[in-house]
């Protein structure tokens, strides 16, 4: 018959092993889910951040903050909505809550054509890049909520999904989307 103290130590060791191995397995599972989300939605994250950023540094900040918030929140994602809708929620929330860094005596680099050449595929023609640049510039001029609604609409999300993520009614989403499109049309015709 084992001594009580030996039994206690054995039980403690088995609990510790379960805790360590369990945690390691959980960590691996979270990493796997994050990598899957990253591979599938990396472009989406970049596109949203580009619509909100004014400078290169802001774009990189927003992108990294979005990835970090996705990583921190992935354990709590229960799959109530689709993965892309959840990613939209996290990235849009990151962008609207972003506080610009204040670099004393230093101006951040504005987003320009050279940045677009680095960001997009080498196969993209200059004319194509110029159209993208104009599109992102027009979108970034919209207020945050209208911009968020438009971005989800551009990605073929249903009005109900957009309403849930943004926190408005379906009718309000429709009316704000129309307002955003009218504003874009006005800005686009002004630029010609």
């Amino acid at each position: 018959m084992p001594l009580p103290w030996a039994l206690r130590i054995r039980r403690l060791m088995s609990c510790l092993m379960a805790a360590v191995c369990g945690d390691t397995e959980k960590q691996r599972s979270l990493e796997g889910r994050f990598n899957e989300l990253f591979c599938r939605h990396n472009n989406l994250i970049a596109g949203i951040c580009l619509s909100f950023a004014r400078t290169r540094e802001e774009f990189e900040d927003l992108r990294q903050d979005s990835l970090l918030n996705i990583w921190n929140g992935i354990g709590s994602f229960r799959g109530d909505s689709s993965a892309s809708t959840w990613v939209y929620r996290v990235v849009l929330n990151t962008c609207v809550s972003y506080k610009r860094r204040w670099h004393a005596g230093k101006r951040d680099e504005e987003i320009c054509m050279e940045f677009y050449r680095e960001l997009f595929d080498e196969s993209s023609a200059t004319e194509e890049l110029e159209r993208y640049e104009l599109m992102y510039r027009l979108i970034s001029a919209l207020p945050p909520i209208d911009k968020s609604i438009l971005l989800m609409w551009l990605d073929d999300k249903r009005y109900e999904e957009i309403a849930e993520v943004i926190g408005l009614s379906r009718d309000a989403v429709a009316s704000r989307l129309k307002r955003a499109k009218d504003r874009l049309a006005e800005m686009a015709s002004f630029r010609t």
């Binding site: 990396n42 990294q64 960001l119 997009f120 993209s124 992102y136």
Partner: peptide
């Protein structure tokens, strides 16, 4: 445009 964006840096 979404399809043409290159993969970015990994998470820091």
């Amino acid at each position: 445009a979404q399809k043409s964006i290159k993969p970015g840096q990994r998470l820091d």
